[in-house]
Design a protein around this nucleic acid. Sequence first.
RNA 1: GGAGGUGUGGCCGAGUGGUCGAAGGCAGUGGUCUUGAAAACCACCGACCGAAAGGUCCGAGGGUUCGAAUCCCUCCGCCUCCGCCA
Length: 440
Amino acid sequence: MIDPRLVADDPDRVKDHLSRRQQPDLHPIVDEIVDLSTRRAALLTEQSELRNQRNVLSKQIGELYKQGLRDEAEGLKATVQQGNERISSIEAELAQVVSTRDDLLLQLPNLLDDDVPTGASEADNQILRVWGEPPRFDFAPQSHVEIGARLGILDFEASAKLTGARFAVLRAQAARLERALINFFLDVATQEHGYTEVMTPYIVHRRILEGTGQLPKFEGDLFKLHGELNGSDAFLIPTAEVPVTNLHRDEILEEEALPLQYAAFTPCFRAEAGSAGRDVRGMIRQHQFHKVELVWITTPEHSAQAHQTLLGHAETLLQRLALPYRVSLLCSGDISFAAQRCYDLEVWLPSQNAYREISSVSCFGEFQAQRMALRYRPDQEANRKAKPRPAHTLNGSGLAVGRTLVALLENGQRADGSVELPEVLGPYMGGELVLRPPSA
RNA sequence: GGAGGUGUGGCCGAGUGGUCGAAGGCAGUGGUCUUGAAAACCACCGACCGAAAGGUCCGAGGGUUCGAAUCCCUCCGCCUCCGCCA
């Protein structure tokens, strides 16, 4: 979340960012937070004074008893009891004020980075560069659905039997290709780009999702477990970002330990609420898909550079796979709730004659760190205590596995119905780099 | 699922309802000593809120009390045994 102090001190700046995000309707929330912060400060001061009085008097009572001065002690007790009543009412109001303020704070999206272009929609995103050439076909290119059916490796009828729409069954070479991509992505990340691989739970508690910003606003996008798990509401993760970024919540990391770089393969579960009718066919938009996610935890001084590095890591993967893609910088109206700056990598899909998102590389600044109490202690000069500061977090897909598989099938398709895969996957596919129909 | 135990500062580990934010040890930091290092010795050494005074934090949340790390309740984590299971 945004630093509560910043909201209180410079509400106009916050409102300006909300306007850029096309959300001026949130302005009243800012004003409310300012009021609540003022009230909170007053209550805190009064509470602190009363507690001090209680502590002082309680000590006196103890001593009076030791000296056998019971009557004097009883008199003080009455005073303390009176104070306690006032403390109780202050505490009640304080709890109310703080929880209301925090609820509101959690609803505010992140501040935007200066270089985020102002715009209303996807159409205003800035295309930064285009890599590779969309392949030319001397036949009408088919979609991965047709290709997969002809090869007998994508089976949407089977998945429909199991769980209905927006699921897929992968067979034979498709299943192997999915697994190959996972391993390829993880190997590059861990062996070349310095990431530590982690495997995490795929079910997390509510507060974990609040930490990364999916909750409280987007509960409808998530699959929620029925009933509680270990004492809390629990959800299927929509991305590895959630468990991985939260790995160090409630910690204070030493600056010299930063940056932390994690790579995680997980399935991702998304309800896809509100996307009815969009991309219903095929593997583009699924309730369950696989993704390798790259996560950074670093300092405010290094996060901008880290963002570029991370972007480069994701791009490397597309380049090795020889998939044509472009990079865009999301505008203020299209960028997600928690992000401060975000690049999308979009891969070329011949069947759609369009670039489609395959990776989203975001810098969150301290937004997530504030929410999850993820801090670091800056390197300090001798004898000078350095206060802990919120760390900066980043993440990027590296890459979405299902969509990569789709892109490979569609870009690698040939007139005879076979598909040619890039060289780099050789070791992962047992050297079989051409997928052929069963009869061929 | 059944039974029992346990949860204190970076780590280990004392702790009685009252002056405990918490003994002691280790680690760490600064210093004395030394040519240097080690050893020894001395000092410092948690976090949060606050301009400050001061306040809060002994797994979490409630309760009892003038006062709770210490008593009571609920929850969570960890450990051991049994059962079940990949």
